[in-house]
Amino acid sequence: MLLGVLAICLLGGCWSKVEIEQMAFISLVGVDRADKEDLLVSFQIVNPRALARGSGGGSGGGGEPPVFVLSVTARTVPDALAKLAEESPRVVRFKQLSAIVLGEDLARSGVGQVMDFFARHWEMRRSIWVLVAKKSAQDVLLKGAPVSERVPGMAIKMEMERRAILSPTRYPVALGDFLTGLAREGEDAIASSVEIGPMQEKKPGGSGGKEEGGDTKEKATTGMKELVFSGAGVFRGEKLVAFLGPQETRGVRWFKGKVPGGVLTVPVKTQGTWASLTTDREITRVKPVVTKTGIRYDVEIMDEGFI
């Protein structure tokens, strides 16, 4: 009898357990500067009921969207999380968080305090992606629709994990590497930029309205917005100082030896046309040279491929 009582006392209990039906899984977090003192923090939460009802269409079964966005204004990210917990009937969890999107205004004013929260929170993985929005992070969460995925957070995760040979003009960076770039002396943090753009570009010379016999589906697609990844944001310390274009971003990746391949399109002057070089191997050599006026770097890049 005594042994039985002791055995019961030694049994581990799940005193803090939360059933999965009671959880709210956050897929994306966007942080903007609301004003000089407050933040605008947006949480994109997965709607499992909509995902479970059907596999077709972007709006899920019964017309429900696969995700919904809640935005709160607060002094800090923990304060925003507390306000979200008051509004949400479910327990908020970051275990499925795919990416953190930093708004341009916030990034230019400094991201140190915001990133400190993500660095310390116990559910944050160092493999979460960090992106910088051109303009508003809230717009990215609200208006950005992935082309083939129902959950935008999953689409961003897949885009960032694509082989560099397919997307050499963006700069994917994980949370751990981004924090290192912010903290390490002599190194500047870089993160891929994201914005929203038309899902289908208008045809040159096309009219804005519907023409006789025109394709209404094409017109509807043109009005939709998708997530566009091109270029990167460069930080000096904890502040964003500039955006790099696609070709500049490719140059940075070349310099760091992070372009295993890609497609280079160059003009052929003798034929008056263009040619594409598909590269499958890249070698970068960086040699520092000390001169009387300072230090310069000689960079040698060799690409191998085929036309």
Rank of each mutant, 00 (worst) to 15 (best):
L166I: 07
T291K: 12
T169N: 07
E185P: 08
A7C: 06
G272H: 06
T284E: 06
E87S: 12
T221E: 12
T180D: 12
K210N: 13
F118G: 00
P172G: 02
I8E: 14
V132A: 13
E212G: 07
P267W: 05
N47I: 00
R184F: 12
V101D: 05
R126P: 13
F229D: 01
G208V: 04
S109A: 11
R163E: 15
V29L: 07
P168M: 00
V77Y: 04
S230T: 13
I196D: 03
S109V: 07
I45T: 05
T180I: 13
Q138H: 14
F43G: 00
G13F: 11
K134V: 10
R253D: 03
P89W: 02
L40P: 00
D139N: 07
K143D: 12
G176S: 12
G13D: 11
R162F: 07
G112D: 15
Q44D: 04
V147E: 13
Y171D: 01
P288H: 08
E212C: 07
E21W: 15
L84N: 03
Q200V: 04
V41E: 00
G176M: 02
E64N: 08
E21I: 07
V228R: 08
G176V: 05
G237F: 03
G251C: 13
T265Q: 09
A82T: 14
R108E: 08
M160H: 06
G208F: 06
V69F: 08
I283S: 15
T284A: 02
E212D: 11
L2E: 14
D177Y: 09
E187P: 13
V5N: 10
L141G: 02
K292L: 09
N47P: 09
L179G: 05
V111F: 04
L81I: 11
L84I: 10
D303F: 14
F243D: 06
A137H: 04
D280M: 08
G208R: 11
L240P: 03
P260Q: 10
R236L: 13
Q44C: 00
T76Y: 08
P146H: 10
P48T: 00
M160K: 08
Q96D: 14
D280I: 09
E185S: 12
E238A: 11
L39N: 06
V114H: 09
G223D: 09
G58K: 13
I45A: 01
E201G: 14
R90V: 01
G110H: 05
R49Q: 12
K292V: 07
V266K: 15
L141Y: 01
I26D: 01
E86V: 10
L264E: 09
